[in-house]
Design a protein around this nucleic acid. Structure first.
Length: 815
DNA sequence: AACGGTCGGGG
DNA sequence: GTGTACGACCGTT
């Protein structure tokens, strides 16, 4: 028989004396299928330490190598010769195949026991299968084979061939999000004792909350079960019936799925959610993960934290904060700590059902939002969405390299041993160049930046562990270091792969640009490529990397400094004034020259650069301000504000986003920057601040603007000193509000002569007895002091005190 | 400052 | 499962 399917997940099991791979997937019309394949045999590579070929006697010795394992003897089932490269060295290799994946670590031990190099013995079998067989999950394959009984919930076919159909991708997988609420006593819920009270499910075809305390309701999304056990059985029925491609949750690796599994055990339920009738599998190790065979479980929190958190504003990655930022919508207002008493009283449960469903909905929407990115990474790495969605940047880069290694005849280097990791951790090198700005207000600033600086350097200069210190190009040394050089003749592995990534990304961006409209799938694709390209530099300097190469990382940074400093020198030589520069960007003020002249300068620079490198135009800013650092007159690095041509203010490094600054301080800082940059009116800014100070004194500022937010890091009892936010937490507890670590504590400082901690009130307790002087001196003034210093104003000027110095003629010179 | 330990997310 | 994290932030010395 024949069929077409998109593989989604993979496992293997031992049948007789061989490994049987099970590929789980779905057909284009949504039927679930399992495809069996027994054609891949586990293997590893052996080489002599000097890389030379094996003599006949040595070959015999390896063929006869046997390992005793409890009751059986293990030996290689076949031996083949091949020539491969390891980090630039040619090695004559032997491929030793074995019957079972678990034989491989044993063979490795034996091989290393006779002092031979052993490679690729630590590649998990299912990953090896996907990469070696070139089976890319989520893309379409044609299978030919025989229908067999597989003891599964779905049909099964033993494949004689699996061939790609085209590049058709499963772009809209069927996703269901799951969220549970538990009975939570003081502290944390304990899964052996506290029951699950409700389960929310949200997908295209399901919006449901199952719970087991009956109450009167007209809400159609609520379904009642007899008890907790019946609720879990109902969950299984629904998942069996709906068979989603993807099951998602928020921190479901660490909470929801382990909890469901534990409850099923306590209740002695056979909760066989897996397509092979297996239960939820908890993967042990440093990072626990929960797997349901045949159903792709994605803990979207983990993907967001590892891959997207860097580009998020919010520091907190709880569902509410992330959803608010990405979806513009927070959780349903409900104090979940009150669920327990509502449950006990059997009253007021419905709002918690709504809350539960909302959480599932937000999780569903987040997963849907990131699915294109996950899919693109799946296609680039040729691994399953389950695995890709749980990988850190360094793992993504590494598995991308692994998936392309054989194409370049490269052996995969072994993971570093502990001793090696320790020694790597101690090695540092010089990073990027940051130009110390002169504090001041400047006009007509043009910002240029290198497009993908580090990736383009890696590609242009052929920086790769296998091109380092070749015999042929000793003169091709890197900037500032005559002991490091890279080959000009032989293409390096990593530099080739990254060059490919850059070129593919350029092509995709070109297609998007030409289409003139939004292309979400192509955009996810170029984003995935950008992520891999940008993470490669960090990967080579990362102590745990297989392709670790500190000289590479060091050289990339050195070339980066070289190129940016070259731009700075040329700009100065051309009569521009360089105001600031950081890593890959340069801020120059026109100094009477025109934008066209700046553009001509940029073109000149580009004519001198290697092909893939490009100095881009980032923007023009009519005004910009650089402030001094605390306690010195030097300009602060990475802290400035710019006025864009459109009139918006771009703020970098200022406190406006810090949450432990009150709203009034943030507001004042932003407004002052606006008045100075947009209105070009520092005196108005001064008057504005003086007005706010006066309002604070007259208690005309609403309490809402005075709230200071600090996160409670641990249990109250565990703090040795009572800081203001701890004092506030104690007050909350005293009022019966449950307080737990991680909560954002909100408080206001009131008048008095005591220590601050004794003058803390909760926002709702405070009317107008707040401490004006505290807010003036500790919040508002520090937020704007440095900005005014640039304008030539002193503290006295801000406070409206008779002053020794006035405006220093700064503005006259500026205009 | 250097070091070592814990935490994150969930309820 | 042919393997497994990691960086930020805390408190202590």
């Amino acid at each position: 028989m024949k069929l077409q399917f998109y593989p989604l997940d993979i496992t293997y099991k031992i049948v007789g004396d061989e490994a049987l791979v099970q590929l789980f997937g779905r057909t284009p019309d949504g039927q679930k299928v399992c495809v069996l394949d027994r054609s891949l045999k586990p293997y590893l590579w052996v080489a002599k330490r000097d890389g030379t070929g094996f003599k006949p006697s040595e070959l015999e010795g390896i063929k006869d190598l046997e390992v005793e394992d409890s009751d059986k003897r293990i030996k290689a089932t076949s031996v083949e010769e091949a020539g491969l490269q390891l980090l630039g060295r040619e090695l004559h290799c032997l491929k030793l195949s074995a019957a079972l994946p678990s034989d491989i670590p044993l063979l490795r031990e034996a091989v290393e026991g006779i002092r031979l190099l052993c490679l690729e013995a630590d590649i998990p079998f299912t990953r090896r299968y996907l990469i070696d067989k070139r089976i890319t999950p989520m893309t379409l394959y044609q299978v030919e084979g025989e229908g067999v009984r597989g003891n599964l919930k779905i049909g099964c076919i033993e494949a004689s061939s699996i061939t790609p159909v085209n590049s058709d991708t499963l772009n809209e997988p069927d996703i269901i999000a799951l969220d549970i609420e538990t009975y939570t006593p003081e502290g944390e819920p304990v899964n052996t004792e506290n029951p699950i009270l409700m389960i929310g499910l949200y997908g295209k075809n399901i919006r449901k909350v199952i719970t087991w305390k009956r109450f009167k309701t007209s809400a159609e999304f609520i379904e009642f079960a007899e008890d907790e056990a019946a609720m879990l059985i109902r969950l299984k029925e629904l998942l069996d019936e709906l068979k989603p491609d993807i099951l998602t949750g928020y921190f479901s690796d660490g909470f929801d799925l382990p909890y469901i599994r534990a409850r099923a055990e306590v209740l002695k339920l056979n909760l066989d959610l897996g397509i092979d009738y297996s239960r939820i599998i908890l993967k042990k190790g440093a990072v626990p993960a929960a797997k349901i065979t045949g159903m792709v479980h994605i803990d979207i929190f983990r993907f967001i934290r590892r891959v997207a958190s860097g580009s998020l504003e919010t520091q907190n990655l709880d569902l509410s904060s992330v959803a608010r930022e990405l979806l513009g919508e927070g959780k349903t207002e409900a104090d979940i700590s009150q669920l327990r008493s509502a449950w006990e009283q059997g009253e007021g449960i419905e709002p918690f059902c709504e809350y539960n469903l909302k959480d599932a909905e937000l999780t569903f929407r987040l997963c849907s939002m990131f699915m294109p990115n996950i899919t693109e990474l799946v296609k680039l790495l040729s691994l399953t969405p389950f695995e890709v969605s749980r990988m850190s940047f360094s793992q993504l880069v590494e598995w991308h390299l692994i998936s392309r290694a054989r194409e370049f005849s490269q052996l995969i280097p072994n993971r570093p041993i502990y001793r090696e990791v320790s020694s790597r951790m101690g090695r540092t090198y010089e990073g990027a160049f940051v130009f110390q700005p002169e504090p001041g207000l400047y006009k007509d600033i043009v910002v240029f930046d290198f497009r993908s600086l580090y990736p383009s350097i890696i590609s242009s200069h052929n920086i790769s562990p296998d091109t380092l210190r070749c015999e042929c190009c000793k003169d091709n040394t890197v900037p500032e270091n005559s002991s490091i050089w890279f080959c000009r003749k032989k293409q390096g592995f990593i530099s080739a792969v990254i060059g490919d990534v850059i070129e593919r990304r350029i092509r995709i961006k070109e297609i998007i640009r030409k289409s003139g409209e939004k292309q979400p799938v192509l955009d996810a694709r170029q984003n995935a490529l950008k992520l891999l390209a940008n993470a490669t530099y960090g990967y080579m300097g990362f102590f745990g990397a297989r392709w670790y190469c500190l000289e590479c990382a060091e050289s990339i940074a050195a070339y980066g400094r070289h190129y940016i400093q070259d731009v700075i020198a040329k700009a100065q030589g051309n009569g521009f004034k360089v105001r600031y520069s950081d890593t890959d960007s340069t801020f120059i003020s026109l100094e009477g020259k025109t934008k066209e002249q700046a553009e001509a300068f940029r073109k000149d620079v580009n004519n001198t650069l290697p092909e893939l490198m490009e100095l881009g135009y980032q923007g023009f800013y009519p005004r910009g301000i650089f402030v001094p650092t605390k306690g010195s007159s030097y300009g602060a690095k990475k802290k400035y504000a710019l006025l864009s041509e459109g009139g918006s203010i771009v703020i970098k490094g200022f406190e406006t986003v810090r949450r432990n600054l009150s709203g009034i301080a943030k507001e004042v800082q932003e407004e002052v920057l606006k008045l100075i940059l947009r209105e070009n009116d520092p005196e108005a800014a001064l008057r504005y601040v003086q007005g706010v100070i006066s309002k604070l004194r007259k208690k005309q500022v609403p309490v809402e603007s005075l709230i200071i937010r600090t996160q409670l890091q641990k249990e109250i009892e565990n703090y040795d000193s009572v800081t203001p936010h701890v004092a506030a937490a104690i007050r909350m507890k005293g009022k019966g509000i449950s307080v737990r670590p991680g909560m954002l504590i909100r408080y206001v400082v009131i008048e008095g002569r005591d220590r601050i901690r004794d003058r803390v009130l909760l926002p709702e307790e405070c009317r107008d007895n707040y401490d004006s002087d505290y807010y003036i001196n500790n919040q508002v003034i520090p937020a704007v002091e440095k900005i005014f210093e640039v304008m030539g104003y002193t503290m006295d000027d801000i406070m409206g005190r008779p002053s020794q110095s006035t405006l220093k003629g700064f503005m006259e010179g500026f205009e």
